[in-house]
Design a protein around this nucleic acid. Structure first.
Lengths: 211, 211
DNA sequence: TTATTTTCAGAACGATCGTGCTAATCTGGG
DNA sequence: CCCAGATTAGCACGATCGTTCTGAAAATAA
């Protein structure tokens, strides 16, 4: 393996790129700035990627792997349906809440920055975010199908809401230094899922106790 | 009034700055780029503000005035409480949905960018966003007090949710070119407010009103 | 008109950006 | 050991950045 050394260095670079990129943006992530951060020469670092855009794409890919490993994978242990939906959300909130990145969630920072900057970077970010939203929606749909959520629930709208809470929490924490924001997000998630729960009793209970 | 001419030019600059700033970010809003956009020399434009930071702050102030005029003011026509809360949200969604800015909501773009970049710009943005969240929360609180929303409703959490929907919609539209995103936001707002409505009849109507 | 202040353009500065080119250094396989 | 290839540093380039300075043009006051 002649690659051993290079791969390790590449990893080291990408870890720093993820951190710096979340704080100063993927665009503001300058090669020189990043090289200084890890004690390399500008050109030495540059040689690992052919261009700045390649570096950005590699950083996104690296962050996506990290995210997949720490959010998607663990949630697969939960039963499909509502349990897994909750597991996904819980792992996600925990992931963002405990992120070591100076600028909060890497994807939030990057996608906000590139949302109106056409090119491969935007496309990749959009694809990842879309996939994540679809993942939530799909699990919500399963929960509806299994009767764990009310039939009237629109899975797409539910995913929209739940996703919004976590993004809002990340935004509020970064802008306000609000350490309670993720607590609020959890509360909002709980309330929204509770309201989406089907009524506990069949249409005509009559006699027996209520509730 | 010796200022007449200068003020007009300043306005013209700030209009362009708001547009460009929403698209490429307040940081990426370069003096040269902006000067070229409106056919001025770099130094000529620069003379209107003493520094780039002053330009950024002026742009924020200008955007805030615009926002106040087009969102806050119209909603004052509505009755306090739930009606005004709805009016605020409706004006806000309409405002962002119909914004002419290439990059969507100016504040979303700016606050995301500066959330982890300390300084006066971040402070001003945080202050404005906090004020807006408080505004929503205060109207929600009034609605609860007036019995238009259920007593169990937490105004702070409600404001958190509602704010999250609109931010999510703006984010989704920019990143996905999703023109339905604001329709989803309106749906989410309606659902959430509906769930916050008190049950149509009190458990113990009896004789006199309590409270 | 003239005098004065406001407004703007032009040129230049140091710094930093992304990116090539060249050579030195390191690393593992024979 | 040596040698081929991977890895990195050094240097320089054009471009663009924010900023400063100087002077011309334009607007206003006298």
């Amino acid at each position: 393996m002649t690659r051993t050394h290079g791969e390790r260095k590449r990893r080291e670079i990408l870890v720093a790129a993820m951190d710096v990129g979340s704080a100063e943006g993927l665009g503001g992530l300058s090669i020189g700035r990043l090289a200084e951060e890890i004690g390399m020469s500008k050109s030495g670092l540059f040689a690992h990627f052919g261009s700045k855009e390649e570096l950005q794409l590699a950083t996104i890919g690296f962050a996506a792997e990290d995210y997949e490993r720490r959010v998607l994978a663990p949630a697969q242990d939960a039963e499909p349906g509502l349990a897994r939906l909750r597991a996904l959300l819980d792992a996600w909130v925990t992931y963002i809440d405990a992120t070591g990145n100076r600028g909060g969630c890497f994807f939030d920072a990057a996608s906000s920055e590139f949302s109106s900057r056409p090119g491969p970077v935007r496309e990749r970010l959009a694809q990842l975010s879309r996939g994540w939203l679809r993942r939530l929606e799909q699990e919500a749909r399963a929960a509806v199908r299994m009767g764990e959520l009310a039939r009237e629930v629109d899975p797409e709208l539910l995913a929209f809401k739940l996703h919004a809470y976590v993004e809002e929490a990340n935004w509020a924490r970064e802008l306000f230094d609000d350490r309670r924001s993720f607590h609020k997000a959890r509360g909002a998630i709980d309330e929204t899922l509770r309201h989406a729960t089907p009524p506990p009793e069949p249409p005509r209970p009559q006699i027996g106790d209520r509730s």
